[in-house]
């Protein structure tokens, strides 16, 4: 510990709390305030109203919520399957191939999302595969962008899994698929849930690739929020942002409560 005196500790605590408050507490508080604001002409908003939430849960905005949640679930689920598959299959590769492929599966997280969207537009606006203007291309964009994060989470979990469990299972006569189903995957469950949660949160907030590829009938919340703020409806934008954050939080908290018996000691 660095500071021992009572006054010194009080000072550092105050500085730290103020810093955190201004940097991280204030932005969220301000969005929350704005989402209830009827008017904001002085320091604090006035005429509190629920109107923006009513707007956020009606018409286009409600549709945005639906689109975001569906896109998030589908993209995260596909990413979870393919990421888990990749992480598991990577373990049986020769050493050099494993190193190279590990980097390959991480690359999508390093490429700017706008370029991912542009690539999809260029690739799938021409035969043989025409996806431009479909819902599918949005889901694909989200899948590509979050796949590296699911892969990373699952492979980190696999690396932490003691090798003994699987070897004992194998020595007891479990064939590879039986072992995978009864031992490896149950033990990985906490990591799978964490991977899914992170992917879902990232998908809910994705903007760069979505604005490149979304069709008029499939507008996600971030795009909707941008459209609202762009035409000056900033309080509605704030309310929709709150809905986004709360929806994400509800899903994440729900997932965190999924009971898993696989707590490794």
């Amino acid at each position: 510990m660095l500071v021992w005196s009572r006054s010194g500790r009080a000072t550092t605590a105050t500085i730290a709390l103020v810093l955190f408050g201004v940097l991280y507490g204030l932005p969220i508080a301000v969005i929350a305030l704005a989402s209830f604001a009827g008017q904001w002409n002085s320091v604090l908003p006035s005429k509190p109203t629920l109107e923006h939430y009513v707007n956020a849960l009606h018409g286009d905005s409600l549709e945005n919520l639906h689109v975001s949640v569906v896109t998030g679930f589908v993209a995260s689920l596909v990413a979870l399957v393919s990421g888990t598959w990749a992480a598991l299959a990577l373990r049986v590769q020769p050493r050099t191939a494993r190193r190279v492929l590990d980097a390959v599966f991480f690359i999508p997280s390093a490429v700017p999302s706008v370029s991912v969207g542009l690539g999809l537009l260029v690739a799938f606006s021409q035969p043989p595969v025409l996806l431009n203007g479909t819902t599918m291309i949005v889901v694909i964009a989200h899948f590509v962008l979050i796949s590296a994060f699911t892969y990373g989470n699952v492979s980190a979990g696999l690396a932490r899994l003691p090798v003994d469990f699987e070897q004992v299972a194998e020595s007891l006569g479990a064939r590879p698929f039986y072992r995978l189903r009864r031992v490896t995957l149950p033990l990985l469950t906490p990591y799978l849930i964490a991977a899914f949660s992170l992917s879902f949160a990232l998908s809910m907030g994705e903007l760069g690739a979505t604005v490149m590829v979304y069709p008029p009938g499939w507008v996600t919340m971030p795009v909707g929020i941008f459209a609202l703020s762009d035409r000056g409806a900033i309080f509605d934008a704030a309310a929709l942002t709150m809905v986004l954050a709360i929806t994400t939080a509800i899903v994440l908290i729900g997932l965190a409560r999924v009971p898993t018996r696989a707590s490794v000691r």
Binding site: I31, A34, L198, G205, L207, I225, I234, T241, A245, L252
Partner: peptide, 11 residues
């Protein structure tokens, strides 16, 4: 895990 534009909007 929060969307990055949230901060820009609040600013």
């Amino acid at each position: 895990a929060l969307p990055t534009f949230l901060v820009a909007l609040s600013f």
